[in-house]
Design a protein around this nucleic acid. Structure first.
Lengths: 130, 130
DNA sequence: CAGTATCCAGCGCGATACTG
DNA sequence: CAGTATCGCGCTGGATACTG
């Protein structure tokens, strides 16, 4: 980290903030990370309440930043799959400490998390951070 | 983390995003952390380009979230000092991995960081993340 | 010095309808 | 299915001037 000081420079962050500050970006990164590969419509379902425009915009953004990849299959009906790039995986991991911090701070109880998760990311049999 | 799954739930993040997504919030957290205690006008100088309104708004926000504290001295001219709370310190630490990730990703060279930092956070003798 | 008061521009984001 | 096209609102944050 720092050699002769305990100061931390946040200048790298100036660039990243734009990525992580978007309302859905981190959620999307994480969902894709959880699923490995996922289609547009499935993302829509997981992200309760997102509009197609917003999702499309965000995905495009994340692609430009090389955080996710896109593979389209020439079928009818069309199929497209999204996945994390190496960088995307890295981001996902780097976010975990903030998650832990936030969870701890909220006194995030199992109940709370479950109820929240039910309507968003973690519905179904598999849950985490409970 | 997760017990029987490698999935990561981001639901705690839904609440935190509001904090970390503000353009200046993280920078402010970090500067205060670096300095220990700092005054309004000095923050203005460190945060190159921020307007007094924006700074005041952000500080108020961070106080409400208990991330920073404020101490006012009844002097003339008035003096006010800001400092990190325990929670603020925690956030600062939790952000470091993202920093590392971002720095690495940018191929953040010593030169780059120095030049960027000169006009913002890390001016002067002490630098970090170079 | 440490803010407040105004005013205003830009963009993120949602809702809805439509298309290859 | 996987988006695009439109429209519009609210909030963030910048510029500037003023105050206890």
């Amino acid at each position: 980290m720092c050699e002769d000081t305990n100061e931390i420079c946040l200048c790298p962050l100036e660039g990243v903030i734009d990525s992580i500050s978007k309302k859905w970006a981190l959620l999307i990164i994480n969902i894709i990370g959880n699923k490995g590969r996922i289609r547009f419509s499935d993302l829509m379902k997981e992200l309760n309440g997102i509009s197609p425009k917003t999702l499309a915009d965000t995905l495009k953004n994340l692609q430009e930043q090389q955080l996710i990849g896109r593979e389209a299959f020439s079928e009818i009906p069309p199929r497209v799959e999204y996945y994390l790039t190496k960088d995307g995986e890295g981001l996902r991991e780097a976010v975990i400490p903030i998650l832990k911090w936030a969870a701890k701070r909220d006194n995030h109880t199992k109940e709370k998390c479950v109820s929240v998760c039910k309507r968003t990311t973690c519905s179904g049999k598999k849950r985490s951070w409970s």
